[in-house]
């Protein structure tokens, strides 16, 4: 499994030309995930149109755009969660460390062990806190040690709150704690990338700011891709921002500062300044 997904290849053939409408796609650092001419259809309706972008390593990349524009769809293509939707049909390629994850020899289960995911609504399993964090290790047939559990909970800034109740049900935690538990669960298996789909949209402001702090810390070790419809949030925590607009189009992708201060595209500017959306 690791052989398939971890092969680093940066041959010229697999490097795409920068394909965003803006020209600001020159990154320092390594590209971890990269989509090329990605089209996604649900049945007959197209949800993503020709999306190409590169996601840099150990940074926070945000996806913003009005609801229904395909942000979640894009995110779910990155770890092949869309395979679980029968009607979804994907054209184009996604490269993870240079390897096309839609190639025939890639197991989606193995891929998801390297690319973790945190969802919009906190979805801890109806098990104990300990078992939630241990779940990924167990299904991946890795050894579970108390140290790994503690370390994961610490890195998710949850340890101090739950260290005395590891054997109680995760469902007894507050929404914000549940979401941090989901983050702990995702990092326990030590993935390369963490995908987050509006991780704070169901939380109150205090819980939201805790999650935001956490995301910035996580970016020191992991590549984080976050979907949000909250522009301030994207501005606060992300290094790069991709703007999707209705119809599943990637309109602009650049440094977050650039997008918010001086976007190239008129529609992006209208969206950022709240003229529509």
């Amino acid at each position: 499994m690791s052989e398939q997904t971890e092969t680093t290849s940066s041959t010229a053939a697999q490097r795409p030309e920068v394909n965003t409408e803006s020209s600001g796609g020159q990154f320092e650092g390594k590209t971890v995930l990269e989509s090329r001419d990605l089209d996604v259809y649900y049945g007959e309706t197209q949800a993503l149109q020709d999306v190409s972008l590169q996601i840099p390593e150990k940074q926070v990349t945000a996806m913003i755009g009005p609801s229904g524009c395909g942000k979640s769809t894009f995110l779910r293509c990155l770890n092949r969660m869309n395979d679980l939707v029968d009607t979804a049909h994907i054209e184009g390629d996604v490269f993870f460390n240079g390897k096309n994850i839609y190639a025939d020899d890639v197991e989606s289960v193995a891929l998801r062990r390297r690319i973790g995911m945190v969802f919009q609504h906190p979805n801890p399993f109806p098990k104990t806190i300990y078992d939630n964090v241990a779940y990924g290790l167990r299904v991946q047939n890795n050894e579970v040690t108390d140290d790994i559990i503690e370390d994961s909970l610490r890195r998710a800034a949850l340890w101090d709150e739950v260290k005395d109740q590891l054997d109680t049900s995760a469902l007894d935690l507050s929404g914000g704690q549940q979401q941090r538990l989901c983050i702990a669960r995702a990092i326990a298996v030590d993935p390369d990338v963490i995908l987050m789909d509006e991780p704070a949209s169901a939380l109150d402001p205090i819980a939201t700011s805790k999650i935001e702090d956490l995301i910035e810390e996580l970016a020191e070790e992991y590549t984080v891709v976050i979907v949000t419809h909250n522009m301030q949030q994207a501005a606060r925590i992300s290094d790069k921002t991709a703007v999707f607009l209705t119809g599943g189009e990637l309109v602009e992708f650049d440094d977050t500062n650039k997008i918010f201060e001086n976007p190239e595209n008129q529609r992006v500017e209208d969206y950022i300044t709240g003229k529509f959306g």
């Binding site: 995911m117 979805n123 109806p126 299904v139």
Partner: peptide
């Protein structure tokens, strides 16, 4: 059984059978 639980399990690299066995069936 809420689909979110299945998604959570798949997202952690569980196979379909592991998801059914550990998350769906107990619920």
């Amino acid at each position: 059984v809420p689909d979110e639980l299945r998604q959570g399990s798949y997202g952690l690299g569980a196979s379909r059978w592991q998801t059914i066995r550990n998350v769906v069936l107990p619920e």
